[in-house]
């Protein structure tokens, strides 16, 4: 941040500029494609700082070209990086350094975002919403949207100021803090997944075994006595091991449909 005081060539970014960039970052994936992924959306998001920092059209073109390179990260955690890059562009830092920070950060941010947002926040909030909606309760979707977007907004708008204010220092902070946080998030996430397995997979068998004169209902008299919900748990783990073996999710969908139909036909399920 020392360089910030030495170079005062251009207008400084205002709070308003940061807000605008955070809002533009909602469209990070507007032009998503397989060649550059989020590159054009990233450029779209940071245009305000590039325009402010490069008054000459020639310079602006050079800066824009640099930011058209391949880019892909988690769409919710993009704003801390926008903040950092904005601080660096504003200070006319070395383009090489800006590029390497972008490249070094997009992977970890993507991984953290997957763990925190897609694998923790979304399953928990959508699971809670679905558990209400499945009983016909209209509050389900509303509660889901409120909690999810409350956290979404804090991350997105808080992130840009955090990134900008701490500049490059934020990167180191991010790395040390996230390990503990994502560990804690995993604990909550997996506890909830355990509960989801128990409540929302319906799988039981109507089979009745004739043992002499006594009729034994396999589900109520045997399986439920050992461990209720053992079939859902067992089936989840079967699929888990198949996934680990490299079987694609699409094949597992086919397998599940086949099992359901065949199982029903023979009266096993």
């Amino acid at each position: 941040m020392a360089s910030k005081t030495t170079t005062k060539s251009n207008e400084k970014l205002t709070k308003r500029d940061l807000w605008i960039m955070a809002i533009r970052s909602f469209f990070l994936q507007a032009s998503f494609n397989y060649e550059r992924m989020q590159a054009a959306g990233w450029l779209y998001s940071i245009l305000p700082v590039l325009k402010k920092a490069n008054k000459k059209k020639e310079d602006l073109g050079k800066a824009m070209k640099r930011h058209m390179e391949f880019f892909n990260t988690h769409p919710f955690l993009i704003t801390p990086l926008i903040g950092i890059v904005a601080a660096m562009e504003e200070n006319k830092e070395d383009p090489e350094m800006i590029r390497s920070i972008k490249v070094a950060t997009m992977g970890p941010l993507g991984g953290i975002g997957d763990a925190l947002i897609w694998l923790t926040l979304l399953p928990i909030t959508a699971g809670i919403g679905a558990s209400l909606a499945i009983e016909g309760n209209i509050a389900g979707p509303i509660i889901f949207l409120l909690i999810f977007n409350g956290i979404h907004a804090v991350l997105r708008f808080g992130g840009i100021f955090y990134g900008y204010n701490t500049g490059v220092k934020a990167l180191k902070k991010l790395k040390t803090g996230t390990k503990a946080v994502s560990h804690a998030a995993s604990i909550v996430g997996l506890t909830v997944v355990g509960g989801l397995i128990a409540s929302y997979i319906s799988l039981s068998t109507p089979l009745v075994v004739n043992a002499g004169k006594a009729e034994v209902a396999l589900q109520e008299d045997v399986l439920d006595k050992i461990l209720p919900n053992m079939l859902p748990l067992g089936y989840t783990f079967l699929l888990y091991f198949l996934l680990k073996k490299g079987v694609s999710p699409t094949k597992l969908i086919g397998l599940t449909i086949l099992l359901g139909v065949v199982g029903k036909y023979f009266g096993i399920l």
Binding site: A115, I187, V193, T236, Y240, L243, T256, I257, G260, L269
Partner: peptide, 29 residues
């Protein structure tokens, strides 16, 4: 049968979550 399969299908989603999240130290939770 499709109904039965529909009831089983959440297991796929949960298994995908587990594939990425589950480590030995998390099995307890």
């Amino acid at each position: 049968g499709l109904s039965v399969a529909g009831g089983m299908m959440p297991a796929i989603g949960f298994a995908m979550l587990l594939k990425i999240m589950l480590k030995k130290e998390y099995v307890a939770f």
